[in-house]
Design a protein around this nucleic acid. Structure first.
Lengths: 228, 228
DNA sequence: ATTGACAGATTATCAGACAATCTTCGGCGG
DNA sequence: CCGCCGAAGATTGTCTGATAATCTGTCAAT
C-alpha cells in the first residue's frame, strides 16, 4: 500500500539532527552546544525555526538554554514528562490490562537481581522498609500515590538494571491514575504486600516474593476493568 | 535556602495555560483548539512565541497541528514516548551487560503470553518459523541482523503486550551493534535456538523455551565483554 | 578581597510577510 | 442527481529584520 508522502517539518529534522549530534559527539549533561545562530547557519534554516526544535527538546530536558550563555546538553527527565502528560485525556486509550502485564513482567523480572544485590548491600532493604513505613503513615491520597510510586521505583532501581528503571518510571505516566482509585481501606494491604516482598527477597526467597508481587499488581486488574 | 528568582518564559506560561484549557474544557483527542492567531491574541503574545509553546506540546503528542486545519488535541502514542526514552541516560550510556539483562527480562517475561496466544492463533508459529527459515538462508551480515531483529520483534509482538513491544523495538537501536559482531559460524546456532524456542512454546513448554532463550541472549555476553 | 559598572555574547520576543498545505464550496459534465 | 475538479479561503510553516532581556567576564574603585 502506498503511503501519503509528507514533507518533513524543518523543526523535526533539526530536532533529530541535534539528538544525533549529541549522541555522536558523546556529549554529557552540561557540555556546550553551538549557539542558535551557528546551528541555524549550519543547518541552513532560520534561527526561529531552529528554536522550534530546541524548545521542543528543552521541554523534555534534553537541551538547556540560557540567555548570554547559550545551549547546553541537558538530562532527560521522566518526572517532567510524567507531569506534562499526567492530565491528558488520551491516556485513557492505553489498554489497562497491557499496562498491568507490562508492570508484572518488569517487576517480577528484576526480582532475582534485587535479591542478589540485597545480599551485598543491606541498605537496600532498609531503604525500602523506610519508604514502606512512610506509606503506612500516609493520610492523603496524594501521599499514598507518591510513596507507592517511590517504593516500586526503588525496588526496580535496586536491581541495577537501569534501562528497566527508566522504562518503569515512564510507565508511571499511564499507571498513576489507577493508583488514585485505590480505596483507603486497601492501603495497608498494599503496604503488607510490599513488606512481604522485600523480606522474602532478603531471605533469598525469590519465588515467594515473585508470587506475592504478581498478586499485588494483579489486584489492580479487577478494579481497573470495572470502573465505577 | 534562598532560591534564584527567574522570570518565567512566555512559552512555558502559554504551555501551562493550554494544558489547563484542554483539561477544563474536557477536550478529547481530535477536538479543535483555537487557532494560533486567536490564542496569541488571547494570551497577548506574538504568534511565534505561542508556537514555541505549541511545538513543545506537540513534541509530546499533547497537541497536533495541521496547515489549513488548525490545532487539535493530540493522541498520546506509547511509541513516541518510548522513543524519547531512548535519550534517557540510562539507555544513552547503558552498560552492555545491563542491555543483556534488560533484553532477558523482557523477552523471557513475554513467553507465557506468547504461548497462550499461540494456542489460539497457529499463524504466530508459522510466521516466526518463516522468518527463521529466511534467517537460515541469510548470506550477508546485514540480512542476518535484519532477520534476527525481525524474529525477536515478532516474538515480543506476539505477546500482545504493546508497551513491551515498543520498548523492545527501541532497545534494538542499542543492541544492533552487538549483533554485527556475531561470527558467521554462529548464525545457525542462533537459528537453532530460535526454532527450539518457538517449538517449545507451541508445545506449551514455557520453562524449556525460557531456559533456551536465556542461553541464547546470554551468548552475547562473553563476546561483548571481550571485544577484539 | 569585594563590589559595582560596563561591554560583549547569546537567548527571548516581537512585527511583518510570504510559502505551503488542508478544507470547503461551487461549477461543470456525465 | 452525483462525482470530480479547480478555486478560494483558512490556517500553519518558515522567513527577514529588529529590539529586549539575561548572563558572563573584565576592569576599576574601595
Amino acid at each position: 500500500m502506498l503511503k501519503a508522502v509528507k514533507r518533513p517539518k524543518i523543526r523535526d529534522v533539526v530536532a533529530l539532527r541535534l539528538k544525533n549530534y549529541i549522541a555522536q559527539e558523546f556529549l554529557q549533561p552540561g557540555d556546550r552546544l553551538p549557539t542558535e545562530t551557528e546551528l541555524a547557519d549550519r543547518f541552513g534554516v532560520n534561527r526561529l525555526s531552529l528554536r522550534e526544535a530546541t524548545k521542543a527538546l528543552e521541554f523534555l530536558g534534553i537541551v538547556d538554554a540560557k540567555p548570554g550563555r547559550g545551549l547546553t546538553v541537558g538530562r532527560i527527565d521522566m518526572q517532567r514528562i510524567v507531569e506534562h502528560l499526567g492530565f491528558h485525556p488520551a491516556l485513557h486509550d492505553v489498554e489497562p490490562g497491557e499496562l498491568i502485564d507490562t508492570r508484572t513482567v518488569i517487576e517480577t523480572g528484576v526480582l532475582p537481581f534485587v535479591a542478589r544485590r540485597m545480599r551485598q548491600d543491606p541498605s537496600i532493604h532498609e531503604r525500602l522498609t523506610r519508604i514502606n513505613a512512610d506509606l503506612r503513615r500516609a493520610r492523603s491520597l496524594r501521599k499514598f500515590v507518591e510513596l507507592d510510586i517511590a517504593f516500586h521505583h526503588e525496588l526496580v532501581a535496586a536491581s541495577g538494571v537501569t534501562p528497566l528503571m527508566a522504562f518503569s518510571d515512564m510507565l508511571v505516566v499511564f499507571f498513576r491514575r489507577f493508583l488514585e482509585s485505590v480505596k483507603k481501606g486497601q492501603w495497608q494491604d498494599g503496604a503488607d504486600s510490599h513488606q512481604f516482598i522485600i523480606d522474602a527477597l532478603q531471605a533469598g526467597k525469590v519465588a515467594a516474593a515473585d508470587k506475592r508481587l504478581r498478586k499485588h499488581i494483579e489486584s489492580h486488574r479487577k478494579r481497573i476493568a470495572t470502573p465505577k
